[in-house]
Amino acid sequence: MKNVFIVICLFSAMSAHADVDTLIYQPKILSPELKSDLDVAEYKWLLGLKLGQMLPENSDSSSKIGFSANYLIWEQWYATAQIDLNEWQLTPNTTESAIAWSVGAGYSVLQGAAYITDGLTLPWQMYAQLNVGEQSLKQASSTFASGALGWQLSNDNNYAALEWRHFQINDDRLKQLNSDKGYEWSITFGKYF
């Protein structure tokens, strides 16, 4: 009860000092820099299809496919959401499918130019990404965390990315096999929207 009383006191003190916006409308001059209604198509989404291979510790490598959606937030920062279908080779003769979803954030660390042929030079960027999420393997769901480094090459609104990722999964069965962490590589083809 003492705790509840302290919280109520704190909260009422806080509300009493809350600012009240009485001005609802004010005129504003549109300058070119601030003009948000610039009549140009805006591309802020990257949607891609991913193919790759998982390399867990103490376990055989296996294939994976996935879908990724990135949203450009501000300057080099972006938010990301991914859903993957992983094939786990936990015993020599059987594979088990797992669905893993994750959300996270990424940052474009380096940018540069790749000379392809005369008259064709494409922009590339190296990015770092952190994800957290969940994997469902044989009806047992467990938390999933990963960090990735990737290299993306783009042409107009299309892109291809090569990625190297370290993952850790909090799954009992994988822990018993010492396969709860490892690496994966993937290649993603996608488009800006």
């Binding site: 916006d21 609802i24 409308y25 004010q26 005129p27 504003k28 820099e33 610039l38």
Partner: peptide, 19 residues
Amino acid sequence: VGESGGLKERLAWRLTELK
């Protein structure tokens, strides 16, 4: 682009919602 004259200067008054 604006500094190089690439954007049409469009001074206009409009009502902007604060809330």
